[in-house]
Measured scan of single mutants.
Amino acid sequence: DDVELRDGDWRVELKDADEEILRAVEEAIKNGASEQELRELAERLIR
């Protein structure tokens, strides 16, 4: 699993992620995405 989400800690570690993925995830976090939404976003972007 390349995506690590810690309970109560919104730092997201994406291994080997490019800047576009990181920006998309950071934007989702700023917009108040839930953990499930972040997982789905990350899975779509990593593929």
Results as ranks from 00 to 15, higher is better:
K30D: 04
Q36M: 11
E37I: 04
A33Y: 14
E27S: 10
A42H: 08
E20F: 11
R23L: 10
K15A: 09
L5D: 13
N31A: 10
A42T: 13
D7R: 01
D2V: 14
E35F: 05
A28H: 03
E26I: 10
D16F: 11
E13I: 15
E13F: 02
D16E: 06
I29S: 13
E37V: 04
E40W: 02
E35R: 06
I21F: 06
R6P: 09
E19V: 10
A42N: 04
S34F: 02
A28K: 02
R47P: 10
E4S: 11
L45Q: 05
E27W: 00
I21Q: 03
L38M: 04
A42Y: 15
V12S: 15
D1M: 13
I46S: 06
I21N: 01
E4W: 01
V12Y: 05
K15Y: 09
A28V: 01
E13N: 15
L5Y: 11
V3D: 13
W10G: 04
N31S: 12
R39E: 04
R23W: 07
D16W: 10
A24M: 14
R11T: 07
A17H: 07
L45F: 00
L41Q: 00
A28M: 07
L45I: 10
G8T: 10
L41D: 00
Q36F: 02
E27R: 12
R23V: 05
D18L: 09
K15L: 15
R39H: 05
D9A: 01
R44H: 13
I21S: 05
E37D: 07
A28P: 00
L41W: 01
V3R: 13
K15Q: 07
R11N: 08
L38P: 00
V12I: 09
S34E: 04
E26D: 09
D2S: 13
G8W: 14
D9Y: 01
D1C: 05
L38V: 13
E19K: 08
L5K: 14
L14T: 03
A24E: 09
R47N: 15
E27Q: 11
E4H: 15
E40S: 08
A24L: 14
E37L: 03
L45W: 00
V25F: 14
E40D: 10
R11G: 10
R11F: 15
E13V: 15
W10Q: 04
L41R: 00
G8V: 07
E37Y: 04
E27N: 10
E20R: 10
E27C: 06
I29N: 05
G32N: 05
G32P: 00
E13W: 04
W10L: 07
A28R: 02
D18E: 08
E26W: 03
Q36W: 02
L45R: 03
L14Y: 07
V3P: 06
L41H: 00
I29E: 15
L14D: 03
D18A: 09
L22E: 02
A33H: 04
E13L: 15
N31L: 12
A17F: 13
I29Q: 13
R6Q: 13
S34C: 03
D7F: 02
L22I: 12
E26R: 12
D7H: 02
E40N: 08
Q36V: 10
E20H: 15
R6G: 15
A28W: 03
N31D: 06
N31C: 03
D16A: 06
V12A: 13
A24T: 09
L45K: 04
L14S: 02
E35S: 09
N31H: 11
D7P: 04
A17I: 09
R11Q: 11
I21T: 11
G8S: 07
K30N: 10
E35Y: 07
E35L: 11
V12C: 03
E43L: 04
W10K: 05
L22G: 03
A17Y: 12
L38F: 02
L41N: 00
K15F: 09
E13K: 13
E20L: 10
A33K: 07
G32S: 02
I21G: 02
E35W: 06
D16M: 05
R47T: 14
L45P: 04
L22Y: 06
E43Q: 09
I46Y: 01
E40G: 04
Q36D: 12
D7Q: 02
G32W: 00
E37G: 02
K30S: 09
E19Y: 09
E37T: 06
E4Y: 02
D1R: 11
V3L: 10
G8H: 10
G32M: 02
S34Q: 04
E19F: 05
S34H: 03
L38R: 02
E27I: 11
R23C: 05
L14H: 02
K15V: 13
D9F: 01
D2I: 14
E4T: 09
V12F: 02
K15E: 12
A24F: 08
E43T: 07
E37M: 08
A17C: 04
S34M: 03
S34D: 06
G32L: 02
L38D: 00
A24K: 12
W10I: 09
K15W: 07
I46Q: 11
R23Q: 11
R47Q: 15
K30F: 07
